[in-house]
């Protein structure tokens, strides 16, 4: 249907876009100037000439106390966190939801509600006991310690439970007649059907893992486990005496930190939409 173009509506839309995109542009542009320029002139909306230098330094310059942490290491660590989080949470919550929905065992409903109420408890509430456990297990300064304690996901379990409940029972019955046991039914039928759900949860959980700050801060003292989020913070922490913080580098890291989540959203959103249009009816 043809719609009449209303200039005023577009004006509002354009204003909205500008408003939302301005900080990102500002960060990107500012990262291409020298720290002294930024310090004296404030933030930039125009590109500078220092960009190549900044990004090269951010990605490859060995910094930190030990002098062997580069931006690339931090990027890598964040990636491991993000993907480990998302994949781990999906696997774990799918299995939990599968058990809750398809196996009739005592207290299943109570168990579900117990899992569900943990939604009310944010990480911060249990951060000390979690730290204690990891410390006792000797998992400080390991990827296992970074990822595993946060894998149990009430949100994921809830989403998958709702989704599994919407799968028609006849599908399970047909699979049983076709000789698929509980494991085969899960792998052959349920997992492929859950693709869209998995994509949605991957987006949410990847970004959640990527943006973790407090937990890695507690769990790791070894600089080789630093994530991007900590890196940005540590650059701005050097304001001692007359030294100017490397604003450009902080901005560059922020821009770099933005790319993977954006990429994940773009890639999985396509899958997401494809999955939606492919579904039955």
């Amino acid at each position: 249907m043809m719609q009449k173009i209303k200039p005023f509506d577009h004006l509002i839309l354009i204003a909205g876009v500008l408003f939302l995109i301005a900080p990102v542009v500002m960060a990107l542009m500012s990262s291409t100037h020298t720290p002294t320029d930024i310090h004296s002139n404030g933030l930039y909306l125009t590109p500078g000439s220092y960009g190549g230098e900044t990004y090269r330094k951010v990605l490859t310059h060995k910094g930190g106390f030990t002098g062997d942490v580069t931006g690339l290491t931090m990027l890598m660590n964040s990636m491991i966190m993000g993907i480990g989080f998302a994949v781990g949470k999906i696997v774990l919550s799918m299995m939990a939801a599968y058990a809750l929905v398809y196996f009739r065992f005592r207290f299943a409903t109570i168990l579900f509600w117990m899992i569900f109420t943990t939604l009310l408890l944010p990480l911060e509430v249990r951060i000390m006991p979690s730290y204690q456990v990891m410390s006792t297990l000797g998992l400080l300064n390991t990827y296992t310690g970074l990822i595993v304690p946060l894998l149990a996901s009430a949100t994921g379990t809830f989403f998958f439970r709702q989704f599994f409940r919407s799968v028609p029972d006849e599908l399970l019955e047909a699979a049983r007649i076709d000789g698929a046991g509980p494991f085969k039914f899960f792998i052959d039928i349920l997992v492929p059907l859950s693709r869209t759900m998995m994509a949605a949860i991957f987006i949410i959980m990847f970004i959640y893992g990527w943006n973790q700050y407090l937990w890695p801060l507690l769990m790791t003292t070894d600089e080789t486990f630093y994530t991007l989020m900590r890196g940005i913070k540590s650059i701005l922490q050097v304001w001692i005496g007359s030294q100017i913080p490397d604003y450009n580098e902080a901005f560059a890291l922020a821009v770099l930190a933005m790319i993977p989540p954006v990429a994940v959203v773009v890639i999985f959103q396509r899958m997401f939409i494809k999955g939606l249009t492919e579904s039955d009816k």
Partner: peptide, 20 residues
């Protein structure tokens, strides 16, 4: 016996085809 061991085949009202 399990349904698969009974040597039967079933046709469901809503077809129950595997959509994927």
């Amino acid at each position: 016996l399990d349904p698969a061991e009974r040597d039967i085949a079933m046709v469901f009202q809503n077809y129950a085809l595997y959509p994927h």
